[in-house]
């Protein structure tokens, strides 16, 4: 296993050129593609998530880092053998009914994708019925709901009720987030988890599925 410090540094800086060159270097040195991903790219995104949670990094840096990672993954893709990269889990994500804000939700989706989850983003203003339909259709491990307006938060318990009524509540883990949402609210509406920002959302999702 080689040292991926330069690669991690480049991803954190959002330096696509250097990151791609480092990835190529690793490939040329016959490093295991899976190793580059698991020990270089994913830890770099974890670090970015941590910095974001603290306020040390901001939205554009996070977007840039995610973009850099995507470029590197493109190089690695052809080298992955069948079943080499296992998805960490399938996440269905959307902004609840009555709410059109999607930047926060998009950041969460991006960070989760960067951490190895499969993301199904069903957009904004998603009614409980739509969540239900998509859960049936895609069979996700986690359902993520976002709300930026305190007035649209009640759509979260409504969605949970809809899942319960359809007998699907126990098949999925439910995560919620958004500016007015709190840990306490999550407990109150019996969601499984709350994440305060895109950085911590990844850790919470991993926790829910019992992966490190």
């Amino acid at each position: 296993m080689s040292d991926y410090e330069a690669l991690m540094e480049a991803v954190l800086k959002g330096d696509i050129k250097t990151a791609v060159a480092e990835t190529q270097k690793a490939i040329d040195a016959k490093d295991n593609a899976r190793g580059v991903l698991d020990n270089g790219l994913i830890p770099a995104m974890d670090e970015m998530g941590d910095r974001f949670s603290k306020g040390a990094a901001f939205v554009p840096q996070m977007l840039r880092a995610a973009k850099t990672m995507q470029e590197c993954v493109k190089l690695l893709q052809p080298l992955f053998a069948e079943g080499d990269v296992k998805s960490k889990g399938k996440v269905l994500i959307g902004t609840v009914k009555g709410d059109l804000h999607d930047i926060g939700k998009n950041l969460v989706a991006m960070m989760m994708e960067g951490a190895g989850f499969t993301i199904i983003d069903i957009g904004v203003d998603v009614a409980p019925d739509k969540f239900l339909e998509k859960v049936k259709e895609t069979n996700p491990d986690i359902v993520g709901m976002s709300a930026l307006l305190s007035t649209t938060m009640p759509a979260m318990p409504e969605t949970i009720e809809a899942l319960k009524a359809a007998g699907l509540r126990d098949k999925v883990k439910i995560m919620i987030g958004g500016a007015p949402v709190t840990e306490k609210y999550a407990t109150q509406i019996e969601a499984d988890s709350y994440a305060s920002d895109a950085g911590s959302a990844v850790a919470k999702a991993k926790g829910l599925l019992g992966i490190s």
């Binding site: 901001f58 939205v59 554009p60 977007l63 059109l100 930047i103 904004v124």
Partner: peptide, 16 residues
């Protein structure tokens, strides 16, 4: 604005 994609792009573009 809330339903416009270009607004979101400008929003991120003006964060610094």
């Amino acid at each position: 604005l809330s339903s416009r994609r270009d607004f979101n792009e400008h929003f991120i573009g003006h964060m610094y």
